[in-house]
Amino acid sequence: MSDQVNMERTGAGAGTLGVKKPWSFTAPSVLPGFSLTFGYTLVYLSLIVLFPLSVLVWRASSLGFGGLYAIATEPRVAAALRTTFSISLAAAAIDVVFGLIVAWVLTRYEFPGRRFLDAVVDLPFALPTAVAGISLASLYAPNGLFGAPLAALGVKVAFTRGGILVALIFVGLPFIVRTVQPIIGELEVELEEASATLGATRAQTVWRVLLPPLAPALLTGFALAFARAVGEYGSVIFIAGNIAYVSEIAPLLIVVKLEQYDYAGATGIATIMLAISFGALLAINLIQAWSRRRFGHV
């Protein structure tokens, strides 16, 4: 009798005793609490996430592709989308370059203050966006600490697209650094030694042996930083100037449309932005899967 039960439990083939193993959603386990916790998780997710998002999708779908397209091509919306995407791309790209340097330096070199700087990299994660926003605005305002010398050089940052760029660089940096740091840390020493025994100079070793394996991580970091930059609000609106058609970002336009009770317009822009975010997420997963298959690592 107990054998029968055991075989059911371990799934040992149907037909051994004529007992068919019932399909169960989860593999049998002695640990309790699955139904309770899983059920709670599903309910919570449905209420907090799925339901509201599906409302958004439903509203968007009632606009249809035609409606979405019309919204996207409204001059002001188009300008905001262009502003948001182009500056987010630029900021993420700049973050890749400097983020790589920062990650390299923090992982491979020893110098006083390294631990402190390593902790500081997380600041954009920890600092509330509004605080970052007013600080950056204050810093780059024409009479600000950086704004004043820049103004003397004829460069205006605050209330221009340049301000948006600065804010998005701030916001995206940790994504690059934190994504690429562990990969740098795992670079085998033997790779560098092998390269040296084969006659390569240090520069060749860095360029041809050490940096290429970092490419997938850099791409992932880029996609993460880009996705975050596209949606960023609080850090940007204080420094941006928010002049329609010039320095207005898409998230702000959503807020503006909400204030005008143009739910459709707001929904349209939000849908487009969501689509881009998911695209970025998908790209990340694809990059990682490809990299794992090809190179055996992420």
Binding site: F25, T26, A27, S29, L31, F34, F38, T41, L45, V49, L50, P52, L53, V55, L56, R59, T129, A227, V230, G231, E232, Y233, G234, P251, L252, I254, V255, L258, Y263, A266, T267, A270, M273, L274, S277, F278, A280, L281
Partner: peptide
């Protein structure tokens, strides 16, 4: 525990990270 659809579930949990805060607020307004 093991069950099918785990990565989907985890992706759903990660969702708020990929959504602009403004959009997060918007969905509740909707």
């Amino acid at each position: 525990f093991s069950f099918p659809g785990k990565s989907l579930l985890i992706t759903l949990i990660d969702l708020p990270f990929s959504v602009s805060p403004v959009v997060s607020g918007l969905v509740y307004v909707l």
